[in-house]
């Protein structure tokens, strides 16, 4: 361990973890509402980022259809993502109701491939570095911290901003589930489809709604990620680390997804404080190593429920 680097990496890790947590929330939402393991969530994140980039003026060659400021582009992309979520639920997941887990996982994998191909046709396979971010890489906040490298912690403004947005979005999300009538209906549906139907909740509408909301938070997560790293098709694979985060926290738990996201962010940042180059390089697989450990030691995750299976 290179101790002077640790405070810096802890802060960076937590800030990165915020975005991962937001993306993980989307996966948990879909799972809780409809017991679908959405392997296409990473691709929804990628598509959301690409749509925002496109609404914001794309390549800036002059021939583009839209040239909106970032906030308006994000709103437009969010609207598109909502429609897409509704369409996915209606045309892909609803015909699959009652199919085994394997088929559900495969259909989301197929959807992921489809989105990847579509995005590559529409937007091109090259990474885009011109995502309209309000910050430049040199916009940093310096916090004096004795003992750290150069006695300061340097935080990129883009990271801080995306963490704040992710925190606000997660808070709104959880408040929505705790206090609004629709949120309560969604929780009831997650608990038991038949009983929820019995008390007058329209379960099919709840499924559709949860996909729409998942599309929205995927897009927000994509925009936050893109302001830090730029847009590329590769984002979808990078975002798969939200799955270890979800499993660390436990599949059924929103709080768990947030904690899991922060743990994944922290672990990725902390290995980079090592003096050993191979340990530093392992940042991309550390979440998966954590995943294997948690699957063997405590498969239900930190906050998940143990399941009792009946024949």
């Amino acid at each position: 361990m290179n101790w002077p680097l640790v405070p810096q990496q802890v802060m960076t890790g937590i800030l990165n973890g915020g975005t991962i947590a937001l993306i993980a929330l989307g996966i948990v939402l879909i799972f809780k509402a409809s017991e679908v393991y959405n392997f296409a969530h990473g691709h929804l994140v990628m598509l959301g980022a690409f749509l925002t980039w496109w609404f914001a003026g794309a390549e800036e060659r002059g021939g583009e259809l839209f040239n909106l400021p970032l906030w308006a582009a994000t709103l437009a992309a969010v609207a598109m993502a909502m429609l897409l979520g509704l369409a996915i639920e209606r045309f892909i997941l609803r015909p699959m109701t009652g199919q085994p887990v394997l088929a559900i996982i495969l259909v989301t994998l197929g959807l992921a491939q489809f989105i990847e191909g579509g995005a590559s046709i529409l937007f091109g396979a090259q990474p885009k570095s011109n995502f309209p971010t309000p910050f430049s890489p040199s916009d940093v906040i310096r916090i004096p911290f004795p003992g750290a490298f150069n006695d300061t912690i340097i935080l990129k403004q883009s990271l801080v901003a995306s963490f704040l947005v992710a925190a606000v979005a997660s808070a709104l999300f959880i408040l929505f589930f705790q206090y609004t009538k629709t949120g309560l209906a969604m929780r009831a549906t997650a608990e038991n489809h038949d009983v929820a139907q019995g008390v007058g909740i329209r379960v099919s509408r709840i499924f559709a709604l949860s996909w729409a909301i998942a599309g929205v938070i995927a897009t927000v997560g994509g925009v936050l990620l893109a302001t830090v790293t730029g847009v590329s098709l590769n984002m979808a694979t990078v975002v798969l680390i939200a799955f270890p985060a979800v499993l660390l926290g436990g599949l059924e738990s929103f709080a768990g997804a947030i904690v899991g996201g922060l743990i994944v962010g922290l672990s990725q940042a902390l290995v980079q404080a090592s003096r050993n180059i191979e340990v530093r390089n392992s940042a991309e697989i550390v979440p998966y190593i954590l995943l294997l450990i948690i699957l063997i030691v405590r498969p239900e995750g930190l906050f998940g429920q143990k399941r009792i299976e009946r024949i």
């Binding site: 197929g110 491939q113 191909g117």
Partner: peptide, 12 residues
């Protein structure tokens, strides 16, 4: 780009 597009579509 058409390879993942066709494959995903046919799989679904």
């Amino acid at each position: 780009s058409f390879r993942p597009l066709f494959f995903g579509l046919v799989l679904m």
